[in-house]
Write a protein that binds this DNA or RNA. Structure first.
Length: 424
RNA sequence: GGAAGAAUGGCAGAGCUGGUUUAAUGCACUAGUCUUGAAAACUAGCGUACGUUUACGCGUACCGGGGGUUCGAAUCCCUCUUCUUCCGCCA
């Protein structure tokens, strides 16, 4: 959520930046409405406060009058208060109305794109930030869904039977590969200084609101109505909320957290090759890295995280490229996002395996996550997160790219974790 | 799942038979005095948010969350949440 103060100070530049998300003149006018609503809110609060102040003063006098045995005069003051209350009720209802509208308006405005974000509507307009320099692997191998069946490591029909489409079952060496990747990624995170967290997999409404999944992505989360809990779509949600409401000292920053969780996504409306096999599923495993930083360090931190993720792909020996998302493809809450894609050689397509974002103060404003600088002044923190990495599609690339007539070759770096060097 | 009790500022802990509570007191913290320095002692300061003011300041709200009674609520009532203790169940 944006801050009204920032909107007031930078209306013109914010409007210009929002056009990168494809917002036109009529849409950016909401910023003017927000300022007007805030004016209204302030006006009504001032009026209401004045009435409440009168009531407080008179109530004190009534107390004194009763004490000094003048109940008659006290009664007279009571009737005065009744009138003041009537006046105040009108102010309060106008105040509440302005506050509610202001909140609704603010929630409907996405984060302001960073200056480096390219304009554009769709993923085709994303900027290739780093291209894969070597030639891409060329092979006439099987797609991963066939390999999964061939080696009996991945079973989609079984998933259908137990849960439904989009819930794959791993077995045997497939399961072990999964566990190996989780442990490898977590070890890499923790040795880079991230504290490992095992969070709850179900979260309450306040938590989902804190990181911005609510109200924006309501339909994407699984929801347990009886208990009013949401299955998490990403570990970002519970882990970033660890510091919701906190006032930290600058010395405690940066806070670096990591965690492995399954992720649950309802993911409406796609078809064909896009969702075939493991390309898009309702449940997948992901290791997330999260940082909370001071305002001046966050972009430096973003590049650090980008580098961390890049090293993982290099160690796994997978062809990858890095995209800088254009305004139209940028997530609602993000100011700047880089996507990592790996090349799946059999499908001959790029698959997104990581997304690294700087949310600046957009999340911390809702989270009320602040820090005190050395002079004691309070600032909203900057929050960042990235996948390091998402498993399902990494497995796709490993299976498809590393297939040989003898079997699927496991990259060196994973062998201590799998305990085998080939799946056959 | 059942019963009883509890939730107050960074921490501890009064207030809880409704009206100088602008939430006592202690600890912690910050600044100063003293000291070669430190400790101790002493003095002063010390919650959050919103509004208002050039500024000093002033106003309003906040005692787990929400609602109610009242001229007036930390205090009374309702409700939800969490914690503690006991019982039941259980990996």
């Amino acid at each position: 959520m944006l801050l009204v103060k920032d909107i007031r100070d930078n209306v013109a530049t914010m409007k210009a930046s929002l056009t990168k998300r494809g917002w036109d003149e009529s849409k950016v006018a909401i910023l003017d409405q927000i300022i007007e609503l805030d004016d209204q809110r302030k006006k009504m609060q001032t009026l209401s406060d004045a009435e409440l102040s009168k009531i407080n003063t008179l109530s004190g006098e009534i107390g004194q009058l009763y004490k000094s045995g003048k109940p008659g005069e006290a009664e007279a003051l009571k009737s005065q208060i009744a009138d003041i209350k009537t006046t105040n009720e009108s102010y309060v209802s106008q105040l509440k109305e302005a506050e509610e509208k202001l909140e609704t308006h603010l929630l409907s405005v996405p984060n302001i794109p960073h200056e480096s974000v390219p304009p554009g509507q769709t993923e085709d307009d994303n900027e290739v930030y780093k291209e894969w320099a070597d030639p891409l692997p060329e092979l006439d191998g099987s797609p991963h869904w066939d390999l999964g069946t061939q080696y009996n490591i991945l079973d989609f029909n079984l998933g259908n039977k137990i849960a439904g489409a989009g819930f794959p079952v791993f077995r045997g060496k497939g399961s072990r590969l999964q566990r190996a990747l989780i442990n490898f990624f977590l070890d890499e995170s923790t040795s880079a200084g991230y504290e490992e967290i095992v969070p709850p997999l179900l979260v309450n409404e306040d938590t989902a609101r804190g990181t911005g999944q609510l109200p924006d992505k309501d339909g994407q989360m699984y929801y347990c109505e009886k208990d009013d809990l949401y299955l998490l779509p990403t570990a970002e949600v519970p882990i970033t909320n660890i510091h919701r409401g906190d006032l930290l000292n600058e010395g405690q920053l940066p806070i670096k957290l990591t965690g492995y969780t399954p992720c649950f996504r309802r993911e409406a409306g796609s078809y064909g090759a896009e969702v075939k096999g493991l390309n898009r599923v309702h449940q997948f495993d992901k290791i997330e890295i999260i940082q909370v930083t001071t305002q001046d360090k966050s972009y430096e931190t973003l590049m650090q995280m980008l580098n961390h993720i890049e090293q993982l792909l290099i160690k796994l020996e997978l062809p990858y490229r890095i995209l800088r998302l254009c305004g139209g493809d940028l997530g609602f809450t993000s100011a700047l996002t880089f996507d990592f894609e790996v090349y799946a050689a059999a499908q001959k397509r790029w698959l997104e395996v990581s997304s690294v974002s700087n949310f600046e103060t957009y999340q911390s404003n809702r989270l009320k996550l602040r820090y005190k600088d050395q002079s004691g002044k309070k600032h909203l923190a900057h929050t960042l997160n990235g996948s390091a990495l998402a498993l399902a599609r990494i497995i796709v690339a490993l299976l498809e790219n590393n297939q040989t007539p003898e079997g699927i070759v496991i990259p060196d770096v994973l062998r201590p974790y799998t305990g085998f060097d080939i799946i056959n």
